[in-house]
Simulated scan of single mutants.
Amino acid sequence: MGARHDQTTPSLSGGFIADAFARAIAAAMDHAGATSPNPPVGCAILDADGNILAVEAHRKAGDLHAEARAIATCRAAGTIDRIHTVVVTLEPCNHHGRTPPCSEAILSTPAREVWIAEADPNPRVEGGGAHRLAAANLSVRFLSELDHPDAARLSAEAERLIAPFATWVTTGRSFVTIKQALDETGSMIPPPGHRTFTSEASLTLAHRMRRRADAILTGSGTILADRPEFTVRHLPDHPDKSRILAILDRSGQVPADYLAEAIRRGLRPMLFNDIGDALTRLGNEGVHEVLVEAGPALTGAILAAGLWDEHVVIQRTRSDLPDQITVSRNRTKKG
């Protein structure tokens, strides 16, 4: 029997909603890079007093979506009758794919209100979940409407969360993130005998960025100089994740034994002569996010050509101070 939906219960205050969005975004971030071809999504469910009943995320393609998983958590805990507000980082789906529509899952509960951070950017999905929920007399609101000091920051985090998926699903190309580590002088070259000069916290950040990427783009010079592993080591990787290792190697210098070792590490090496060809092929392969981990020449070429979406600079200042992190977005790049 379907749940009765009305508007007799007042909305929760902005503080409760902001906290729920923060938790949902954090849950989704933990699984960014594991959900392709789907986007990472997080969901928090609250009761009428603002208590969190469940926080869940979509974990991998074919698995339960975030809303369905959070509702299942409430059902298992015996709290499904207390559901009042559903907070989700992406508009609930309203179509049958590998799993049933999340809009219908929400409508099977006593939920009165749904807060959404980002509208579904997929142009091939007809009939939005927000419209379906509103048509069933639920109050449907977007994060952009939230009156809270953290609203702008949360909106930016939610937008970045789905930016790789949104880029790929609307343009067919991959979202390109450049990671660049610099020492105090602005050099990318570590001192002799060292492979890095950044702090432990920055290394964890770098490996978190690597974990969420579907492909790593580098040059033959980086491989010949350092033979990097390109694995996730400073935090647990996603189980069974297989990344493409795209290598710019115009003169065929990358050794065969390095490629064989990369395969044994779970990477899928691909060799290219041209940056544009590499990015086109990666988009065709369904890669949502490419992480550029390369030397100064290739990094500079991609920056100069404007073939990037996000540029993360990690700069060492002094050994007794935290590294300086700067994140820039290329707002002029066209699809």
Rank of each mutant, 00 (worst) to 15 (best):
L279W: 00
A135L: 13
D150Q: 14
R173E: 05
I178R: 03
P192S: 05
L282F: 07
T167I: 03
K333T: 02
I223A: 04
P164M: 00
E200F: 14
T204Y: 09
L154K: 03
T8S: 13
G97K: 12
F230Y: 09
L53M: 04
G78K: 01
E293L: 11
A18S: 15
T332W: 13
H96G: 06
A136H: 15
H207I: 05
A28I: 01
D63Y: 03
S155Q: 14
E104S: 14
D274N: 15
I17K: 05
W168S: 06
T35Y: 04
A18Y: 07
I314W: 10
I116N: 13
H288S: 07
P296E: 03
G193Y: 03
E56T: 02
T198Y: 05
G193F: 01
I83N: 01
P269E: 08
S199K: 07
P123D: 06
S144R: 12
A206W: 07
R160T: 07
P228Y: 03
A105F: 13
S220N: 14
D30M: 11
I178K: 01
H65N: 15
P92W: 11
F142W: 08
R82F: 06
D214A: 08
R153D: 12
N51R: 12
A152Q: 12
Q324F: 08
G172D: 04
T231W: 00
L182H: 07
R264Q: 14
D249K: 12
R318C: 14
I247N: 00
A72I: 04
E229W: 00
A305W: 04
A26I: 13
K179Y: 09
G300R: 00
P236S: 10
D30T: 11
P149T: 09
V41N: 11
S11F: 10
H238R: 11
R173G: 06
G2V: 09
A54G: 07
L282A: 05
E157M: 09
A57H: 06
F165Q: 05
A260W: 00
A34W: 02
G295E: 02
V169I: 04
S144T: 03
H31I: 10
V232N: 01
V86A: 04
T171L: 02
A34H: 00
W308V: 13
T79D: 13
P322A: 15
L64C: 06
G193V: 01
A28C: 00
I247K: 00
D183N: 15
K333R: 02
F197C: 09
G286K: 10
A66R: 08
A77Q: 05
I71C: 09
E67N: 11
D49Y: 05
G252Q: 02
A76K: 08
E145G: 07
F16L: 03
I83Q: 01
H311F: 15
A72N: 09
I45A: 08
E157H: 10
V254P: 01
R318Y: 13
T185Y: 05
S103P: 08
P296Y: 00
G283Y: 05
G14L: 11
A77V: 10
A44P: 08
A119N: 12
A57R: 06
R208C: 13
G219P: 02
I162D: 01
A158S: 01
K60W: 02
A76N: 10
P239I: 09
G78V: 00
D183I: 06
A48G: 12
N137E: 11
